[in-house]
Design a protein around this nucleic acid. Structure first.
Length: 315
DNA sequence: AATACTTTCAACCGCAGGATC
DNA sequence: AGATCCTGCGGTTGAAAGTAT
């Protein structure tokens, strides 16, 4: 069964001809993109405009950077192409989806990764990695560690896991397993939700972490500098070969905390100087609430968030 | 050169939610 | 209240292009 508007009348379907494109462009230039009732189904016109005719679209193949962004966000959000596309200016959800299905998916599989979960596929797991892999399932961090075998191809060096926080604050989970660089693997470092980490800034005012209205405006403003992508940090396991994961964890977490706290403390002081009473415009904010909301409401973070209530910004 | 097979990606489908009449 | 339209989304399809035999 076709779309309602298409089934009612004889409307052209299939590929668009250059003449039709031109006609649609002329129509949009004259009438704007408010009404889509042409000889084609309105839905088809709209789609053609969004996916092909829009002037701000970027053409050509995806760059390595774009690919990495897609992988990183997909790891957190899953197949939410529209959300992912929002972080790639000039790219459409359809484009991202097609690129994923035709390229990235295969690449991940060839690397032994499950494209849906980003975990190692069972067939690629070795005993030395299984411990870490299982650990990942239990752990609650969005820290990512990457490692590679000395002879591994460059594109296989980002084998990453991630997950999001569940346990109560102040508890930094530190799985103790020897980290080696002999096997290409990834490992969870620790729980990022310690009480003095930047998430606190975002949730210091209530249980509904997803809603900006529950957030402390000052805190949100201060967080504007931190894009969600920066929440995911990478460390190189090779630098810590031979150390226990616990040791690596403590060092990395401390460094990350120090850096973040340093930044946020500076920001807070700056903000205090600037008079904290001024209101914050969410619309003008660079902070991506859409993605934040997506992340927080994704199945990755389906855990009970009530523990967030306990978080407080103790400054 | 011809055919078969694979890949790519534009377009479609179906659904949901909101706005309008 | 119900019908219709618009918008947005993720999944799927199939024609065209590319590649292998």
């Amino acid at each position: 069964m076709g779309h309602r508007c298409c089934s009612k009348q004889k409307i052209k379907r299939g590929l668009w001809s250059p003449e039709e494109d031109e006609k649609l462009l002329r129509y949009i230039n004259t009438h704007g993109h408010k009404s889509w009732r042409l000889q084609r189904c309105g839905k088809s016109c709209r789609l053609r405009w969004i996916n092909y005719l829009r002037p701000d679209l970027k053409r050509g193949s995806f760059t390595a950077e774009e690919e990495q962004i897609i992988i990183d966000i997909h790891r957190i959000l899953g197949n939410r192409w529209a959300q992912i596309a929002k972080h790639l200016p000039g790219r459409t959800d359809n484009e991202v989806k097609n690129f994923w299905n035709s390229c990235i998916k295969k690449k991940l599989i060839s690397q032994g990764l499950d494209p849906q979960t980003h975990n190692l596929l069972s067939s690629h797991r070795r005993s030395s990695a299984s411990t870490i892999s299982n650990m990942h399932k239990k752990s609650n961090s969005i820290f990512i560690m990457s490692s590679h075998t000395p002879n591994a191809p460059v594109e296989t060096t980002f084998q990453t896991f991630s997950s999001l926080p569940k346990p109560p604050p102040n508890i930094v989970q530190t799985p103790s397993t020897i980290v080696t660089s002999e096997y290409q693997t990834s490992a969870i470092v620790s729980n990022k939700f310690s009480s003095d980490l930047p998430y606190d800034l975002l949730v210091n005012n209530g249980s509904n972490i997803c809603s900006p209205s529950y957030m402390n405006p000052t805190a949100v403003e201060l967080s504007n500098n931190e894009n969600i992508a920066n929440w995911v940090s990478r460390v190189n396991v090779d630098d810590f070969s031979g150390q226990t994961l616990e040791e690596v964890t403590q060092v990395q977490v401390q460094q990350e905390k120090d850096k973040i706290c340093e930044d946020t403390v500076t920001d807070v002081r700056e903000a205090n100087k600037d008079n904290l009473e001024r209101s914050v415009s969410f619309e003008s904010s660079n902070f991506d609430f859409g993605l934040l909301e997506s992340v927080l409401s994704s199945e990755f973070i389906s855990h009970d968030l009530s523990c967030m209530d306990e978080l407080a910004w103790n400054f």
